[in-house]
Amino acid sequence: MAFNPRKAPISSSKAMADAASWCCACLLVTLILVCIFRDSSALEEDDEGLLRGSKVVSKPCDEIYVVGEGETLHTISDKCGDPFIVEKNPHIHDPDDVFPGLVIKITPSHTTKYYNIN
């Protein structure tokens, strides 16, 4: 079989192009993963499921709220942004007597809060 100088550079060029394509693809995947993990580590989730960072945090609470296990009026007030829960719920006679399953009315005084943990 005779050596053909025109075929040798083509196959090595193709191999180099394939290797360069794989390197670029690996680099792109790595950059995407780094960006995803960097963004998720910049935001931390707290006990109430709120994202904190240099972001606007919305505190969604329905107008009718059912008290969960371990919640107090203070934690519900912080979570929902309603500092006047006792005043708006005349059926709550003792603020310390809050139990799971208790239904209360929520009227948030504000819906967004700014957090900056830098």
Rank of each mutant, 00 (worst) to 15 (best):
M1Q: 13
A2I: 10
N4S: 12
N4C: 04
N4A: 03
P5Q: 06
P5E: 05
P5W: 08
P5D: 05
K7G: 02
K7D: 06
K7I: 07
A8V: 15
I10D: 15
I10F: 09
I10P: 10
S12E: 09
S13F: 05
S13N: 11
A15H: 07
A15L: 00
A15C: 00
A15D: 01
A17E: 09
A17I: 12
D18W: 04
D18G: 07
D18Q: 13
D18K: 14
A19V: 08
A20C: 00
A20Q: 01
A20T: 07
S21K: 07
C23T: 15
C23L: 14
C24F: 11
A25Q: 15
L27I: 07
V29W: 02
V29T: 11
T30A: 11
T30C: 06
T30D: 03
L31P: 08
I32L: 14
V34K: 12
I36A: 03
F37H: 08
F37L: 12
F37Y: 09
R38A: 06
R38G: 04
R38C: 01
D39S: 15
S40F: 13
S40L: 14
S41M: 01
A42H: 07
E44Y: 03
E44D: 02
E44T: 15
E45Y: 00
E45L: 06
D46S: 02
D46E: 02
D46T: 00
D47M: 13
D47P: 04
E48T: 05
L50K: 11
L51T: 13
R52K: 15
G53C: 00
S54G: 15
V57C: 13
S58G: 06
S58V: 13
K59P: 01
K59M: 06
K59F: 02
P60M: 15
P60S: 14
P60H: 12
I64G: 03
Y65Q: 15
V66R: 11
V67W: 00
G68C: 00
E69N: 14
E69D: 15
G70H: 09
L73S: 01
T75M: 09
I76V: 14
D78P: 01
C80F: 07
P83G: 09
F84E: 04
F84V: 03
I85C: 05
I85E: 11
I85D: 04
K88M: 02
K88N: 04
N89L: 02
P90E: 06
H91A: 06
H91I: 05
H91C: 00
I92Q: 09
H93Y: 02
H93W: 03
D94N: 13
P95V: 04
D96G: 08
D96E: 05
V98Y: 00
F99Y: 10
F99A: 04
P100K: 05
G101E: 12
G101P: 10
G101Y: 14
L102R: 08
L102G: 01
V103K: 12
I104P: 02
I104H: 02
K105R: 09
K105Q: 10
K105D: 07
I106L: 12
I106N: 12
I106V: 15
T107R: 11
S109K: 12
S109D: 05
S109N: 13
S109H: 10
T111C: 07
T111P: 03
K113I: 15
K113H: 10
N116L: 07
N116Y: 07
N116M: 09
